[in-house]
């Protein structure tokens, strides 16, 4: 296990380094005229444009720029934003925005898990009956109708009906509810439909039929075997989902005016804010890799049959 963890950490580091380097180099291929608007071309002559680019640091050769990035990284300094929030330290920008995405994301994730897994269990338990049908209708609606439509419906009509604010206010807790619910809706559907599917699969397996025929109570079979085994394929995603809540939601944060991380990477890329893009890519890739790694470990904890590494040359992973 220790060797496996070390090996995975090494692989993770290499993966992150490749991602960061690739993004770094791709950013350097972006055209320099992207730093200027129409008005800038009128206001600035070539010398002024060159001076501007030089002071942004984007005219240095890529190796110098990468060296600067790494040395800053070693000191815990990710640099300053150059175009989206000029001169603001990147860590300050992320530090201001990440908590909003994180808290909304975590609240929505908990809601999705509680309601989604509960709904999935109900749908599997009462397969082909009302609960299953109602759950399927919900899942179909959420997945088939473009999210923009029901998100706007919730914002426009539900707030009018309940007299709640249309946008998020930090000092009015009632305004936190709808963004959280909106964020959770598709997660609930996702957990419900997949848990139902895995539970129904498990219910049809021989060991379940055997256990039932041996006289084990149905509830015990469901809790101790079916649910536990059905959760195995899902739990590996939990860590990643938790960690990547920090990335926020472009759509919902925009609709409810939540000052989170959603859209920050898009803005940074569009405005060629290299330090901000690099920091975000680094953050997201580290969290992604760590999430996958923790997911693997979690799977082993939930299902002891799964082995992550070969043990003494004998059996492989189950």
């Amino acid at each position: 296990m220790g060797a496996y963890v070390l090996k995975r950490l090494g692989q993770s580091l290499i993966t992150v380094a490749i991602v960061v380097l690739t993004v770094f180099l791709l950013l350097r291929l972006m055209p320099k005229n992207g730093y200027f608007t129409r008005e800038d071309y009128v206001n600035m002559d070539k010398d002024a444009r060159t001076a501007y680019l030089r002071n942004l640091g984007v005219l240095d050769d890529p190796f110098t720029q990468f060296g600067r990035f790494l040395s800053g990284l070693a000191r815990g300094d990710l640099g300053r934003s150059i175009t989206v929030y000029p001169r603001s330290p990147v860590l300050d920008v992320i530090g201001e925005k990440a908590p909003y995405s994180l808290w909304f994301g975590l609240a929505a994730l908990v809601l999705s898990m509680v309601l989604g897994l509960g709904l999935g269990i109900l749908m599997a338990r009462y397969k082909d009956r009302f609960a299953d049908g109602a759950g399927t209708v919900y899942v179909t609606i959420v997945r088939a109708i473009p999210s923009l439509i029901w998100l706007f419906f919730i914002q426009q009509w539900v707030t009018a009906l309940l007299g709640w604010p249309m946008v998020f206010y930090e000092d009015r807790p009632v305004s936190w509810i709808l963004p959280t619910v909106s964020l959770a809706l598709s997660g609930i559907a996702w957990y419900a439909i997949w848990l139902r599917r895995f539970m129904v699969d498990e219910e049809n397996r021989d060991y379940v039929k055997f256990a039932v025929s041996k006289g084990l109570p149905w509830k015990r079979v469901m809790r101790g075997h079916v649910l536990r085994n059905a959760l195995v394929p899902l739990v590996q995603y939990f860590p990643q989902q938790i960690l990547l809540t920090i990335a926020g939601s472009l759509l919902i944060e925009s609709i409810y005016s939540i000052p989170g991380m959603g859209g920050l990477l898009v803005s940074a890329i569009r405005q060629q804010d290299n330090p901000l893009v690099q920091a975000l890519v680094l953050l997201y890739s580290v969290l992604g890799v760590v999430g996958v790694f923790l997911g693997d470990l979690l799977m082993v904890l939930v299902d002891p049959r799964i082995k992550l590494a070969e043990s003494s040359g004998k059996g492989a992973a189950a």
């Binding site: 200027f36 009128v42 206001n43 002559d45 010398d47 002024a48 501007y52 030089r54 002071n55």
Partner: peptide, 28 residues
């Protein structure tokens, strides 16, 4: 000062005030 990256500091303004354009170009 070019180091402050003020894009709106146009050539019109530089040429408006005596000596400003020369100062800016020297620094640049």
């Amino acid at each position: 000062d070019p180091k402050n990256g003020i894009k709106n500091f146009s050539r019109d303004v530089r040429n408006l005030i005596s000596g400003l354009n020369a100062y800016y170009l020297d620094l640049s």
